[in-house]
Nucleic acid binder design. Sequence first.
DNA 1: GAGGAAGCCATTTTT
DNA 2: TGGCTTCCTC
Length: 819
Amino acid sequence: MPEQEIEKLIENLNPQQREAVLHKEGPLLILAGAGSGKTRVITYRIAYLIEACSIWPGQIMAITFTNKAAKEMRERTEQLIGLKARGMWIGTFHSMMLRILRQHAERLGFQPNFTVLDTDDQQRLIKDIFKQLNIDEKHINVKTAHNKISSAKNQRIDWQTMEKSAGNDYLQKQIAEIYKHYQEMMLRGNSMDFDDILLFAVQLLEENSDIREAYQTRFKHILVDEYQDTNHVQYLLVKLLCGKYKNICVVGDDDQSIYSFRGANIQNILNFEKDFKNSKVIKLEQNYRSSKNILGAANAIIKSNEGRTDKRLWTNHKTGEPINFYLAESHYDEARYVASEIRRLINRKNDPIKPGEIGILYRVNALSRNLEFALREQGIQYNIYGGLRFYDRKEIRDFLAYMRVIFSENDELALMRIINVPKRGIGNKTIETIRALAAQENVSMMQIIVDVNQYPELSRASSNLTEFANLIANLRQILIQDKISFPDFCREILAQSGLLKELEEQEKQGNEDAYTRVENLQEIISDAIEFTDKIKEELEQIKKMEASLEEMNIPDLSKDEQDSYNEDLTLIRLTKDFLEQTALYSDLDQEEADNTVRMMAVHSAKGLEFDAVFLIGMEESVFPGYRSFDDPEQLEEERRLAYVAVTRARKYLHITTAQMRLLYGHTRYNPVSRFLSEIPNEYIREVGGARTNQASSSNAFGAKTYYQSGSSYGSNYGLNSGSSSIPDSRLYSKNSPGKKSKTLGSFGLNPRPQKSINKDNGIDLANLEEGQQFEHKKFGIGTLEKIDYVVNDAILSIKFKSGLKRMMASSAPLEAIKD
DNA sequence: GAGGAAGCCATTTTT
DNA sequence: TGGCTTCCTC
């Protein structure tokens, strides 16, 4: 590429961005603050490598956090360098390692067509193991076991190590036992879970020097986005993959590390310079997104965290509007405020904001419900993200399970799911008998069903079973014959299985739920159509690209890739790819609409931006969540989360707190979030009450009447804003410098409520004593070690046999033991 | 084996 | 509070 063209490519970049793009070889860490143009830097860097450094696209691996981000990165690179970009490996760790594993599965003792189990499958499997091992689900929660196994895998701890380290810890020993069976069943079922995909990739590369060297030689440059959210195994993968050339470029922001709960290790980014010798570090500190006020508040919040890299974001943008803080009386009041402010922003004459440019963010998904009502009242369209994935809906999973059983008769998890859906008279007893027979004869369950007449113990259900076997056989025949299109194949499954019919009948009886389910099933057909088109288009693009590569005399794709591209578009192949995609894709991958306000948990908002952001539920115990109170590290993560939330906003930011909130069936009176007192006055405007919990009385009500007009709400709640619900202001005003994340203990200093307040469970807040004994419904007898008073409630730290637990006095199933 | 009542639990979530 | 699971009964 001639000099001028390079100059042109980078002319719109700032000096640090340029440096990052033009960096030639060796490890590179780009510390990219929120809104500092990091995607731009990555895509420009890729373009530069290809156009100016004679790197061909197939030698670049770019790793992203989500499939959506991968898609976006590919599109943006394509805008810069055209079709050539297609030859790159861009994707998530999982999708790319899956691609590698399929090539070499045999080396690990798997067949190449192994199944990928998603969370639901994994938990079903564990449930099954509980039965085998005679473990009571009341004793160990299936979810807990699953979490422990997953987090062990994230740290590359195998069941043997877990067992050894358990010592006398009976619980951990049991988990190790479950873990062991789990891995055995996975291997037997030729399946891997999400964690395995990464673990086995590490193992494959470590144990096979030929494969390792092949990939190390092939990938001259590796780029990792969102590096702050990688886990230990992903770190190992990165090290292995870049082992030869050391051309590793990672981009991330330690201040935005918010996924430690699923194994992300912030140390990966903090230790980068130690891990990769002779690395270069570039900081991107200019923010191109937010106003000065918003950025100032964000900086003020994150400043209280310790152990972060030293950086401070700045911007050229205008000061902008101050952040609005609204102290609502209740969740209802809060919702009305948000809805009417949104209505105002959309309708106003000068510079109206599009609904699609507005985001409502919250710490916990449960907070979205109140808002729905208020938004509907204002006639505002909205979309809720998160919660249940489309592909996790019951009816969709049933459909996919049919597809899996048709595709592979060994997929017993799927088989068990649909053998009696819709109801066809095959009950649990029959299923257990089949399973036992399958184990005894060492054949698949499907085989037993096909041969049902040979087993007298199945005589009662035999006709039903035969009918089921025929159904599957028919559909499999259609799949193999390959005479109809993929969407038609999906239609056949829906029709023949009876899934659609069952729901349509319920729909006729006026079941509204059934109506949405039918819609969802029809949606899957549109998905199938779209999917088929997409694959076809991709194939064409690849062919074009191959031709253009030839023209340019660039080395061609490796053999295995050609093979996979040239594979015919058979029904079988489409089915296989479709099943894979559904396991690996999420709800956030859907396209966003222009005319709907988006609502989501702060976690899901990472990487997004909005003109206007409404951050609701900024209350102690909600945000930061009460679980983080006694753990400084978790509290820092909550603060990073708050930082992420605030930095999503371009022009307007509204933050709300409800003094009274109904959540999980209990009324709570939480103080204003401590994060708000960390924001200096100059950036914020208080509407309807102070954020310091100091003087929310008179001034609060004047402003609020506006939002309450025409409603019967408000006056009743006024009672709750009385003195008893106002906590000691000392605790929520500014932290003394130098004592940063240590404010936690100060809850203990909170004055006791003057009046005794008896909560649902009869615990008397005014008469709590440390050392007091309680009986908990589940944990048994424990001793109260610490009381942290919050408004009208207290967080109790109680030591039980099973360990120290923290719970809310008002709602925990506790009974005081009288001595 | 199916349906209804009662019990249980509730950060965050991508892959 | 409300959605899901499990247990119990017919």
